[in-house]
Design a binder for these strands. Structure first.
Length: 446
DNA sequence: AGCACA
């Protein structure tokens, strides 16, 4: 029987002295300067690490030599006044390490990679697609790696620049993933965000744990792919259709025309749309939407299922995987489009499918659609009606305005969600510590 | 109020 000698618990009065001190119960966002003010009477500080721990209220301070650290600990051990920062008592003890490692001297240097701790959830509760959706609001997400640690479920999220990462951190730190993106049993799910020292994550597979959105050809880990969406058997025990790169969309409550172009706009938010076909079935309208790969399709399916193309519950999407893998459609008709064929008057994505990239507004596919594509479908639109729930600036609801006013997928009983949407940015416009304002529209992140 | 990014 082992008694676990490796885990010798050290009590404070038997703790080995170290020139590194561990400070806890620090005030919110305690700055390095405040730590230096507190500690410098006892010696010279050569390194610090701030905003440590899940609450970011701990820090480490390293003195040049051990005696300085001992003098500080001894002083406060016998002092009638506790150590304080901003009037808050700070608890000090020797660190169980002898030096601060891996610190770029400030402890909180802005980098392009964020370390996100998702509190209050099991790893299965928050899919990597949801994480991608949330963080894509701030810019193109290059890579995501998720893992479990003692701290909980964590993710490393790689952006292009520290500036974009900072924007995401400032907007989201301490806030929650929108409830409607979480399983119903989750009540709170706070994000704790700091900067990682990484600059480029090394992603080996597209899987339920990790993604590289810059490399659509990265192999998919076959054992992991089922974690990206529903498994073959649903929660009710019914068999689900196998995953496919082609989605079958049924459109309910179709009060407004849903054209190929509209579908292209909606589904392009998740990756390159290769082909679209629209047809009637049982008096309703259905469409097939082809992506280059299954993962993109599953992201789109998970994100759009049950959502409406237009505000007011109109044109509700119901998505399943099609049995097709490659549609055979007319390159350019009012019921179908093949975006992979050049010289149809429609610009196609010039390179191989960029399935893991955002389609920024005014992507070539789209701007081209205004010109060569006949406007024959347009009169089907009621010009007085908002498009995607966003009023158009002009009376004529041109395609461009649809793109520039980001589509909102208004779901019944849930706020509109729009992937990669710039409109969400306004939701993060508040100060990190500002209380939720009742005068604002409902906040998606609280 | 209790130790640092897999």
């Amino acid at each position: 029987m082992s008694t676990g000698t490796a885990g010798q618990q050290q009590f404070r009065y038997t703790q080995t002295p170290s020139k590194v001190l561990h400070l806890r119960n620090l005030p919110w966002e305690c700055a390095e300067e405040e730590l230096v003010e507190l500690c410098k009477p006892f010696g010279k500080i050569v390194n610090t690490k701030c905003n440590v721990g899940a609450n970011r209220n701990q820090a480490f301070v390293e003195f040049t030599d051990l005696n300085q650290a001992i003098s500080m600990v001894s002083y406060y051990a016998s002092s009638s006044e506790p150590a304080q920062v901003r009037g808050k008592t700070v608890y000090i003890q020797y660190s169980n390490r002898q030096e601060i490692v891996n610190n770029k001297s400030s402890g909180d240097v802005a980098g392009n990679v964020l370390l996100v701790t998702i509190e209050g959830v099991e790893p299965g509760d928050v899919s990597i697609d949801v994480i991608h959706l949330v963080f894509s609001t701030f810019g193109f997400v290059h890579k995501i790696a998720t893992f479990e640690k003692a701290a909980g479920f964590q993710a490393l999220i790689q952006f292009s620049t520290p500036e974009i990462a900072s924007g995401a951190r400032n907007a989201l730190d301490g806030r929650s993933i929108p409830r409607y993106l979480l399983p119903e049993h989750i009540t709170s799910c706070n994000l704790r965000i700091s900067f990682s020292a990484h600059t480029d994550l090394n992603i080996k597979f597209q899987s339920h744990r990790s993604r590289d959105y810059t490399n659509p050809y990265l192999p998919v880990n076959p054992s992991a792919i089922e974690g990206t969406s529903q498994s073959a058997v649903g929660p009710d025990g019914k068999r689900k259709e196998p995953e496919s790169n082609v989605l079958l969309a049924s459109i309910e409550n179709m009060q407004y025309a849903v054209t190929v172009d509209v579908l292209h706009t909606v589904f392009s938010a998740f990756g390159t749309v290769q082909k679209i076909a629209i047809f009637e079935k049982n008096g309703g309208m259905q469409a097939l939407i082809q992506y280059p790969d299954v993962l993109t399709a599953s992201v789109a399916k998970n994100s759009l299922e049950g959502h409406c193309i237009y505000d007011g519950g109109y044109c509700k999407l119901h998505l399943t995987y099609s049995r097709h893998t490659d549609l055979n459609v007319k390159a350019h008709s009012d019921k179908s489009r093949d975006y992979t064929i050049p010289d149809t008057g429609i610009l196609v994505s010039p390179v191989a499918p960029t399935a893991w990239q955002n389609n920024p507004p005014a992507t070539p596919d789209f701007t081209a659609a205004q010109g060569p594509v006949p406007n024959a479908q347009m009169p089907a639109w009621d010009p007085s009606r908002p498009i995607f729930g966003v009023p158009t600036s002009g009376a004529y609801p041109g395609q461009t305005s649809m793109l520039h006013s980001t589509p909102q997928y208004a779901a019944t009983g849930a706020p509109a969600v729009s992937p990669h949407a710039s409109h969400l940015i306004s939701q993060y416009g508040m100060q990190p510590n500002a209380p939720p304002s009742s005068s604002q529209p409902p906040l998606y992140y609280q």
